[in-house]
Amino acid sequence: MLRIDREIVAAIVAHARRDHPDEACGVVAGPAGSDRPTRHIPMTNAERSSTFYRFDSMEQLRVWREMEDRDEEPVVIYHSHTATEAYPSRTDLDLASEPGAHYLLVSTRDPEVAEVRSFRINDGTVTEEPVQVIDATVDGTAVQTYKFGHTPTMVDYECRA
């Protein structure tokens, strides 16, 4: 399961909307070993393509070093699909290179409702996981979970465990 702050999900969706029709991509870093994504880092899609993404290599070096200096790791790696569902493609599986990361996909094909889903990708095998969206502004123990529903805003937190 991916637990992630509502504000971060909203920022990721906003990034995907902003870059549409190109694919958007980025990282949410978190303390190493915590499995808690806390620092959203939008990345440049060096491909500037509606069907492909690749982190800019120099930006990736800078961000990866920064994470190491801060004792962080890439907890979430996200990208958008602009015309298809939020499900990893064959290419996504073949190129997945962070076995510990949650791979978050956002589909911007619907201009009104963004589809957000999370996956683990290991050795070419994809496993979907639920997304639990946390409201950081309220009591941290009063966690709300959205499943299969539409939130009052524009995000569809679709979870198929």
Binding site: E23, C25, V27, M43, E47, S49, S50, T51, F52, Y53, R54, F55, S57, Q60, L61, W64, I77, H79, H81, T82, A83, T84, P88, S89, T91, D92, L95, A96, S97, E98
Partner: peptide, 8 residues
Amino acid sequence: LPAVAGGA
């Protein structure tokens, strides 16, 4: 660093 990449 493995490239972080993929596609639709």
